[in-house]
Computed example of a mutant assay.
Amino acid sequence: MPYGLVVRFTTRDAAAAAAFDQLAAETLEEIKAQEPGTLVYVNHVPVDEAVTRVFYELYEDRDAFLRHEEQPHVKRFLAEREQYLTHTEVTFLNEVAGKRPASSQER
Rank of each mutant, 00 (worst) to 15 (best):
P46E: 11
Y41R: 06
P72A: 11
Q22P: 01
A24D: 00
P72C: 10
Y3H: 06
P2D: 08
V51W: 02
D61R: 05
R53F: 04
E26P: 01
T38W: 00
N94R: 12
E26Q: 14
V6G: 12
A64Q: 03
A50Y: 01
H44Q: 11
L85P: 00
V40K: 11
G4H: 02
R81I: 11
T27D: 04
A25E: 13
V47D: 15
V74M: 15
E57I: 03
T11F: 03
D21A: 15
T86Y: 02
H73Y: 10
A16N: 07
Q71S: 10
P72D: 09
D48H: 13
A15D: 13
Y59P: 01
V42A: 15
E70H: 07
Y3G: 01
K32R: 15
D48G: 14
R76L: 14
Y56K: 02
D21F: 03
T10D: 12
A50N: 11
T91H: 10
T91P: 00
V51K: 09
E106D: 11
N43R: 14
A64C: 09
V45I: 13
S104F: 04
H68V: 07
R67D: 13
H68Y: 06
E29F: 02
K75Y: 01
G98R: 06
E69A: 14
A79R: 13
E60W: 00
R76W: 05
H44L: 15
A50H: 09
V40T: 14
E80L: 14
V7H: 00
H68K: 04
D61I: 05
A50M: 12
L85V: 04
A102Y: 04
V90F: 04
D48M: 13
T38I: 06
S103F: 07
E89A: 15
F55P: 00
L58F: 08
Y56G: 10
T86N: 10
T38H: 07
H73E: 12
T88C: 12
P46C: 10
Y56L: 13
E35Q: 09
E69G: 11
V47G: 11
E26S: 10
A25G: 06
F9W: 05
H68F: 09
D63M: 09
V54M: 07
E70A: 15
E95V: 05
E95C: 07
A19E: 15
F77A: 10
L58D: 03
E29W: 00
E106T: 09
T88A: 15
L23C: 06
Q22V: 11
T38C: 13
P36V: 06
A33W: 01
T10I: 05
Y56I: 12
V54G: 08
Q34M: 06
Q34F: 04
K32N: 13
I31V: 15
F55A: 11
Y3V: 00
E57Y: 00
G98N: 07
H44I: 08
E29C: 08
R81A: 15
H68N: 08
F65H: 09
E57V: 02
A33C: 07
G37M: 08
A15N: 07
